[in-house]
């Protein structure tokens, strides 16, 4: 059986909030290393890969592989009843037809308990190849969100160009064009303001802004975001959480002239 206790419900609330507009029905695959989710959006352009490591829970117990088939809209309805600071416990049997959730207020004067019906979801897993990306950019997640939102007002697509002089986000729309160039920032006092660019070769790729703006809903999960880019392969946008947990989004590029 699964028993997983989170000190603060907000972690799960934020993760589900960040992905529920991209994917609807998906399995939470539980085993002794944690809770994983992999799902594509309906148009097969983006892929979500979530890993909530056992270390992010206290305690975490799951002695078998358990697939918890969830509708994220339904899960959101239940999670709305949890306060951010509530202690959240997930429980499920080995072959579950429901997921038990309890929310305990931090001063322990209220316990809410819900059982959510599960679904049988036949989900195909995709093999994601290990990639040595040509460019890895680490930046404040709020900055990335602002760039994507600003450029989406002008265009459907953004071209991300990483070179030795920095990283450029450029778009071309009906009303004109725009670009934002970022250079390396080293803020010793406030490391979360850093912009780090690791480059092995220059890259330039075009992506749909609609999806990038959607990924930015994960901004609350982490103060920084990492973009991993190589020519001709999907972009990886990664939000890291405490305990080695992460939320990753892969986005297929737009290719051609």
């Amino acid at each position: 059986m699964l028993e997983a206790r989170l000190e603060q419900a907000q972690l799960l609330k934020k993760v589900v909030d960040a992905i529920k507009d991209l994917v609807q029905d998906c399995n939470f695959d539980c085993n002794d290393s944690g809770i994983a989710l992999q799902a594509m959006d309906n148009s097969h352009v983006a892929l979500v890969s979530m890993m909530l490591k056992a270390e992010s829970f206290n305690p975490f117990r799951c002695d078998r592989n358990i697939a918890i088939g969830l509708n994220l809209v339904s899960l959101t309805k239940v999670l709305r009843a949890a306060q951010n600071e509530d202690i959240l416990t997930l429980k499920a049997e080995d072959a579950p037809d429901s997921l038990n959730l309890t929310f305990e207020s931090s001063d322990k004067d209220r316990i809410s308990e819900y059982d959510l019906k599960l679904m049988d979801i036949d989900q195909e897993h995709l093999g994601i190849p290990d990639t040595d990306y040509s460019a890895t950019i680490s930046m404040p997640s709020a900055e990335f969100k602002r760039i994507c939102t600003d450029l989406m007002a002008m265009s459907e697509s953004v071209t991300i160009e990483a070179g030795k002089d920095g990283i450029k986000f450029a778009c071309n729309g009906d009303i004109g064009n725009g670009s934002i160039t970022l250079r390396t920032v080293q803020d010793v006092e406030n490391k979360e303001n850093n912009i780090e660019i690791a480059l092995t070769e220059p890259v330039s790729l075009t992506f749909s802004l609609k999806y990038l703006v959607n990924f930015c809903k994960a901004q609350n999960l982490s103060k920084t975001v990492k973009l991993h880019i190589s020519n001709e392969v999907p972009l990886l946008v990664e939000y890291a959480m405490e305990g080695g947990s992460y939320l990753r989004f892969y986005l297929a590029p737009k290719i051609g002239d």
Binding site: H44, A46, H125, L126, G127, K254, I255, G256, D257
Partner: peptide, 14 residues
């Protein structure tokens, strides 16, 4: 113009 690729063109099934 540029064509949106599918993620399935890059990641293998199974």
């Amino acid at each position: 113009s540029k064509q949106q690729q599918s993620i399935l063109g890059f990641f293998s099934k199974g």
